[in-house]
Design a protein around this nucleic acid. Structure first.
Lengths: 343, 343
DNA sequence: CTGAAAGCGCTTACAG
DNA sequence: CTGAAAGCGCTTACAG
C-alpha cells in the first residue's frame, strides 16, 4: 500500500488541429488540407495556417490520422530472428540506414519487427491488420512462406535478397551471381590453377547465387569445380571449411569465399597451416565489410552496397504505395571488385 | 492520363471489436476488458471472448487504442546519425536485439528514429507529441541536449552510454572504467613496463571512461602515463595512433586500445613495423567484437554485453512507464576480460 | 461483474 | 476554394 501521490505527468499537450484552425481563422478542413499538401487552398489561407502551425508547434497526431484516414503512414521492416544472427550485423545495420535515408522527410514511420519462431501467425495478423501500409522483409531462410502470405493478403511487400520460396513477390538483391563471376574471373586471370570456394548455406539464395557464379566461370575455363565446401556465415565455419579444402587438396592455390566474415576464418586456418597469402593461396571474399580492409593481409573482395539495397527496397515499396504502375518485379544492384593484398 | 482502373486493394478488413462483442454475446466494454487483461470479468465472459477472438482472428487496431487511451503502446529508439556511423554497426545491432528481446510479448512497438542535424526540433516535437510513451537514446556525442530536453518535457527517457551533457537523465552503460582497469592491471601483471593507450574521442564518455580506468591503474602502479593517443573508433585512426605512439617511444611493450575496431588498425601498424604481438608488444582491446577472435593474432579484449545493455535500457524504461518508484538513476553493467593470444 | 455513451484528433465525402 | 458533419475503432468513466 503506497500513499505516494502519483503526480500527473505534466507533459504539455500538443496543440490540436482545432486550435490551429482557430488561430488561423479557418476551418479544420482547411488546416487538414494544408498539412497534407493538397492543392486547392488559397495561398492566403495556406500562409495563415503555416504561421499558426509554426507558432503553436503543431505536430499532427499520427494515431488520429491513421484511424481517420486510410493509410497508417507506417511501414514495417521484418527481420527473421535467426537471420539477424547469421547474416551478421553489418548487413542489417546497413540496410536499416538505407531504409531510413530513403524515408527521410517522407512522414512515414518505420516499425521494426522480428519474426520469432512461435509467433508467425501473430505477426501476420498484425501486419495484415491495417497497422502498416507495406512491409520490407530481410534475411529470409529457406522457403519461408512469409512474403507470399503477406503479398497474398494484398499487403505491398518487398523482399531484400532473392527469396527462395516466394515466386512473384518483388525483391531487390545485390547481383551476387555477377559479383562471384567477377571474383572467379579475377583469380583465373591471375594464373591460379586450382581454385576452391567456400559457399554460404544451401538454404539461402545469397549462398547459392555466389556459388553459381563461381561455377559458371570455372566451367567456362574448363577447370575442375570439385573444391566446394560450405559454411554458415560465421568465421568458425570458414576456418573449418578451409581445413577441409586443404585436406582434400593441399595444392589448391586460390579460394573464393562467399562472405568476408567466413574469409576471416579461412585466413586464420591458412596462417596456421603455414600457407602464405597470396603467394601460396590467393583469397577473395565478398561483401567488403569494414574488417576486410583491416585483415592481415587486407582482403581482396567484392563489394556490395548494403545501404543502397535498403534504399532501393524502400523506394520500390513507396513507389507501389504511391500507386505507380509497371514497377519492375525485381532489381539487381551492381557489385564491384575491390583489389587489396590477399589476391 | 491513364485510364487504368485502380482495383481497390482487397485486403480483408480485420474483425472489429464490435464484431467480437456480437459473436461473444457481450458488450464492447467487456471485450475491451478481456483484451486488456483487466481483472473484473467473469470467467464465462472471458472464455467466450477469447473464443470469439480466436475464431475471428481479431487483432486490435493500435491507432484506435492510442487515440482513445492515454498510451501510445510504442517507444522510440533514437540514434544520432553521426553516432550510427562512428560507433560501428555491431554496437547498434546488438542494442537493437536487446531492446527487441526485452519487448517480446509486451505489445509495445518499437519505432526507430535517427536524429539528423537539421531536424532536432522536428524530432523533439514529434516525440513530445504523445506519439510515444518513452524514449531510448543511444550513441550521443558531446553535450547533446536531446535527452535533457526530452526529460524536461516529461517524457520518460533512458540513455544508453553515459551522457556527457545530461545530468539527471537515467542511463545504462557498461562499466567502462572498471573494464579498462582490469585490462591495464592484466598488462601490469604480465610484467609489461611501458604501457600505452589508444583512447576514443574526447567528446564521448565511453572514450573518456576507458582512458580513466587505464590512468588509474598506471598511477597506482607508479608508471608513466604519457603514452596516450586518440582515435575515433575507426581502424584507420587506430593505425595512425599506433604509428604516433611508436614514434614517441619505440620501446613501448604494451598498448590498451579502447575499442577492438581501433585495435585492428593498431595490429596492422605493429605488423608493418615488424613488431611481434604479443612478444614485442602486448595488445588488449575492448568490446569483444566478432572480429576480435578472428584477428591475427586473436585479440585479448574486454567484453561488454551490448545486447544486455539494450535489454537493461528497455527494462528501466518499461519499469518507469509502469509507474515503479525508486528506480536507480543509472545502471552499470559488468564487463569481462577475454584472454586470447595478443596479450 | 457489465453495458450505454461520450470522446480521443484526425480525414473525407458532401454541399456550397 | 471552403466549412459542417460524420465516422474511423477503440478506452474510459459512469451508472448499474
Amino acid at each position: 500500500m503506497t500513499d505516494a501521490v502519483d503526480p500527473p505527468r505534466s507533459r504539455r499537450p500538443n496543440a490540436r488541429l482545432e486550435e490551429v484552425a482557430r488561430a488561423a481563422g479557418v476551418s479544420k478542413s482547411t488546416v487538414s488540407r494544408v498539412v497534407n499538401g493538397e492543392p486547392y487552398v488559397s495561398s492566403k489561407a495556406r500562409a495563415a495556417v503555416h504561421q499558426a502551425i509554426a507558432r503553436l508547434g503543431y505536430s499532427p497526431n499520427q494515431a488520429a490520422r491513421t484511424l481517420a484516414g486510410s493509410r497508417a503512414n507506417c511501414i514495417a521492416l521484418v527481420v527473421s530472428e535467426p537471420g539477424s544472427r547469421v547474416l551478421a550485423d553489418p548487413f542489417f545495420a546497413g540496410v536499416l540506414r538505407g531504409v531510413h535515408a530513403e524515408l527521410a522527410g517522407k512522414r512515414v514511420q518505420l516499425v521494426l519487427m522480428m519474426s520469432k519462431d512461435g509467433d508467425e501467425q501473430d505477426l501476420v495478423n498484425y501486419l495484415c491488420g491495417g497497422h502498416v501500409d507495406g512491409v520490407l522483409v530481410i534475411s529470409l531462410h529457406g522457403q519461408d512462406p512469409l512474403p507470399r502470405t503477406l503479398a497474398d493478403a494484398g499487403l505491398p511487400t518487398v523482399v531484400g535478397g532473392r527469396p527462395l520460396g516466394a515466386g512473384g513477390v518483388p525483391y531487390v538483391d545485390s547481383d551476387n551471381f555477377d559479383g562471384a563471376m567477377e571474383a572467379a574471373r579475377y583469380l583465373v586471370s591471375r594464373g591460379r590453377k586450382r581454385i576452391a570456394t567456400i559457399a554460404g548455406p544451401r538454404d539461402m539464395a545469397v549462398g547459392m547465387d555466389r556459388l553459381s557464379g563461381w561455377k559458371r566461370v570455372l566451367s567456362q575455363a574448363r577447370m575442375d569445380m570439385d573444391l566446394v565446401a560450405y559454411g554458415d556465415f560465421t568465421p568458425e565455419s570458414g576456418a573449418v571449411a578451409m581445413e577441409e579444402l586443404l585436406t582434400r587438396d593441399p595444392s589448391l592455390d586460390a579460394v573464393f569465399v562467399g562472405a568476408d566474415i567466413m574469409a576471416m576464418g579461412a585466413l586464420q586456418t591458412l596462417h596456421a597451416r603455414g600457407k602464405r597469402v597470396p603467394e601460396d593461396v590467393a583469397v577473395v571474399g565478398f561483401d567488403d565489410l569494414v574488417i576486410a580492409s583491416t585483415a592481415v593481409p587486407p582482403l581482396t573482395t567484392v563489394r556490395q552496397d548494403v545501404e543502397q539495397l535498403g534504399r532501393t527496397m524502400t523506394w520500390r515499396l513507396m513507389a507501389e504505395l504511391a500507386g505507380e504502375e509497371d514497377l519492375p518485379p525485381f532489381l539487381l544492384l551492381p557489385t564491384a571488385m575491390v583489389t587489396r593484398a590477399s589476391a
